[in-house]
Design a protein around this nucleic acid. Structure first.
Lengths: 240, 240
DNA sequence: TTATTATTGTCGCATTTTGAGACAATAATA
DNA sequence: TATTATTGTCTCAAAATGCGACAATAATAA
């Protein structure tokens, strides 16, 4: 039975499943701003989300994790699948053609990339400072962009980003995911800034602290002395 | 460029995208119980969710809607995509082989179905009484089953059902989706029974009515006289 | 006709949660 | 030693929620 597809396939086609791609919206937090990682393709002026194709012998989720590790260097990332985009309108072979040609890939083994794809979209939350953004073979750069200063993204990637943010906001109320964007030790004010950046609104300090501490999910540690002329805040970590 | 895939394909392969399927968890409500539609394949004893493959020329969401219409006869169904299942473990070609053989399909044009698939899963909410469940060409039956009396489902379909119910519960608090399981006119007690069936717990009547009416989404109509020896309730409809 | 029954619409009250301001405590600086 | 900026915590009012209660009412039984 295994020969069924081998019969029609080149090496590349058997490595990956046709028609299936993934894209990831990788959130980071720095300077009180929410940011995401954006790639720029060689010689095309095209900006895109980090993504990839799906290996035939891997779980979908694992394929995405592997891609994330290549782009960020990190493992054990907080990762959530949020939607699968499957409109016909996202089938624009001329764009992939442009990318391939800009990289000198004219030959057969790459032609399957020109077919129609659906994309399973994930968002990831990472500690900004831990990351070394790394471009892939087709890209010049992989860089952080403020959520409110994104370049024009190719295909439907702007829509993917919008839906990622919407889902993150909804999940923020149900899960304590804000901590995933911070270092292991953080102050409540820092955590509040993360929530404000995600929700896009100011929160009341007293109410926020009462609510977060009331969940009983944070552990209090020593104080953080930064040499500023005011009371030093406690540091917290996530986990009992 | 279009010839790229035609070159390798039979008619069936070009009609559908390889490796991509969908499954739908179709919820209905009757007799105070939450139910879903389950199909039984010919001569195999296999039970499965209604699903299908993805047409090359259709949006993913539209392909699912078309499948839903074939199974239920309904259009304009409340439909929500909730997860895409892509584990390697769900690749069990011998099962699809069994189904095909039970239907006398041994020939080439069906062999692509034996390859690995990911499945995009949706749940639908419909008015139980409007539906005429209709089996597809491979199935003996398409019938309602109580959520707590499901047969053994093939592949990972039990997991898909569990995640559908979990997502429905989460969404129930944010959207007023309960109404989609009822006829256009319903009483508040009927709506409360729907919520109780989905959440799996009893709700307090006064609190429930205050909360639902407080949303300002229901319109009150005439009373419903059922000939019972007690006060007649008002009927409501969804919408301004 | 009148009492009974079951269920409805609504109210009241206690409890809990939330929003917003206030104040003392406290690191560092002037 | 006073000043500054920020923190931890408290209080109080307002809003939301949980829960029981009661009168209203449609049909039936007496």
């Amino acid at each position: 039975m295994k020969n069924l597809y081998l019969k029609y396939s080149t090496v590349n086609e058997t490595t990956f499943l046709r028609h299936i791609a993934y894209d990831s919206v990788i959130f980071g937090f720095s300077g009180e701003k929410l940011k995401i990682l954006i790639m720029k393709y060689h010689n095309t002026g095209l900006y895109a989300l980090p993504g990839g194709f799906m290996q035939r012998d891997k779980n979908l989720n694992d394929a995405v994790r592997r891609g994330l590790k290549e782009r960020t260097g990190l493992e054990n990332i907080y990762l959530e699948q949020f939607y699968t985009f499957g409109d016909v309108a996202r089938y624009k072979p001329e764009i992939m053609q442009m990318i391939l040609e800009a990289n000198g890939h004219h030959s057969e083994p790459y032609q399957w990339m020109l077919d129609r794809f659906i994309s399973v979209a994930y968002y990831a939350l990472i500690n900004y400072n831990d990351v070394v953004p790394t471009p892939d073979a087709l890209s010049d750069s992989c860089d952080w962009y403020d959520m409110d200063k994104l370049p024009n993204l190719m295909l439907d990637h702007a829509e993917i980003v919008a839906k990622a943010l919407q889902t993150l906001r909804e999940n923020l109320e149900r899960k304590l995911v804000g901590t995933n964007l911070l270092p292991p030790l953080f102050t409540l004010t820092e955590l509040q800034k993360v929530y404000e950046a995600i929700l896009g609104e100011k929160l009341h300090r007293g109410t926020f602290q009462r609510k977060i501490l009331g969940l009983g999910l944070l552990q209090r540690h020593e104080k953080q002395f930064l040499g500023k002329a005011h009371k030093a805040p406690f540091l917290y970590s996530f986990g009992d």
